[in-house]
Nucleic acid binder design. Structure first.
Lengths: 213, 213
DNA sequence: TGCACCGAACTGAAAATTCAGTCAAGCATT
DNA sequence: AATGCTTGACTGAATTTTCAGTTCGGTGCA
């Protein structure tokens, strides 16, 4: 855990959060990690390999991220738990910002590198799944497909708000407000005519899949 | 409109949609546009200048994109108009895909390049504004701040769904379904307790602003 | 004549990648 | 307990690759 190799991965995450995946210079990473450039090639075959491992590392961390608060805030106020988990991503602290930016980079990079997609889709899927469970707790009346769809919407929204935040189009506090509003819209929906109903909207499958471009 | 210079910008957009901003090689762009490398330096001072113009070009196009269907589908069924405009971005055609990917790149790049942020925020703002107007038409009962907030949510969601689509985490058709569902959630909301109400959520300002990281 | 353009050779710098070799910890020998 | 052998972690200094950007002679054309 505290070996040199992992330290390099940690440093790589930091550098990526600062410069972006494609802005990462092996030399700069070496400096950041306080090791020699060659050590990086010793541990990882080449830049591409390093990147692959780092992105694994990032999505792993993103997993635990969501998984961590599981034992703590459950069963009291389900809606508050839900807000808690989602708003976690819109927190202006070094750690969250780093992770969030790195995750965004992972997303953006995957658009041009098909290799990353599978991992990414898997991590996304578990995140959506976790949120869907929280939704089910907060809204026991709804159907499972409806919860799945709402979870996909809310998590996608979090990602959308995050980039806007990090790209300077939206202050964090406002993003938080908007997200809370969205949770409200999803939970307080009692559509009278059944138009665009969640059950219908979720008919096509269980959620995350692999699309053809 | 059909001069060489604009053709280069169009080609640049195509290349960016294929390789990303940081993956754009001046040589490759020249090949794509069918011109010589030197011509690019003839028209644009350097790579950075080229990029600046191209990104202007992209956000301009994104503007007209939304503005274009204005004359056509107005005043009959406001809700359908709204769906129309938003769903436009989740259309699996070369043109839309190119533009959408390029826009996403612009977003992602802006995270690490503060120069781009102002332009980006401006374009985002007009988009949000347009959608807010459509929302007002579709839901005359609501307040302006509520519409503004809903518009920010829906447009951010579109961006979130788009990256997921392009990064292979979500098939387009499913993304479209989800978006329709979100529109439903925003329009059919009649929250009983006023919790997380749109009016409250929009209290902090008129919408898009410039956040400090 | 001057503008838009080609094309190919070239420079320079920034990166990535390689490599020969050091250092220290183990570990079996005698 | 000194000896030599091995192995993994690590370094510094090359070497190689990749690009942006330049230069210049030349072409068609209004």
């Amino acid at each position: 855990m505290s070996d040199r190799r992992t330290e390099i991965l940690r440093a790589a995450t930091r550098v990526i959060a600062r410069r972006g995946v494609r802005g990462l210079r092996v030399g700069e990473l070496a400096a950041e990690a306080g090791v020699s450039t060659s050590l990086i090639y010793y541990h990882f075959s080449d830049r591409a390999g390093l990147l692959r491992r780092t992105l694994d590392f990032i999505s792993d961390r993103a997993d635990h991220y969501t998984a961590e608060p599981d034992p703590a805030p459950r069963t009291e106020d389900p809606r508050a738990d839900l807000e808690q988990v989602l708003l976690l991503e819109l927190q202006d602290t070094v750690e969250v910002r780093e992770n969030s930016i790195a995750w965004g980079e992972l997303r953006a990079t995957a658009v041009f590198e098909p290799d990353l997609r599978e991992d990414l889709a898997r991590t996304t899927h578990t995140w959506v799944h976790d949120v869907a469970e929280l939704l089910a707790r907060a809204d026991p009346g709804g159907t499972a497909p409806a919860h799945a769809a709402a979870a996909e919407r809310l998590t996608a929204l979090v990602e959308g708000l995050s980039v806007r935040w990090h790209s300077g189009s939206l202050p964090v506090e406002h993003a938080r407000l908007l997200l809370r509003g969205a949770i409200g819209a999803e939970l307080d929906r009692h559509d009278p005519a059944g138009r665009g109903a969640p059950a219908a909207a979720a008919g096509a499958g269980s959620g995350v899949g692999f699309g053809r471009s």
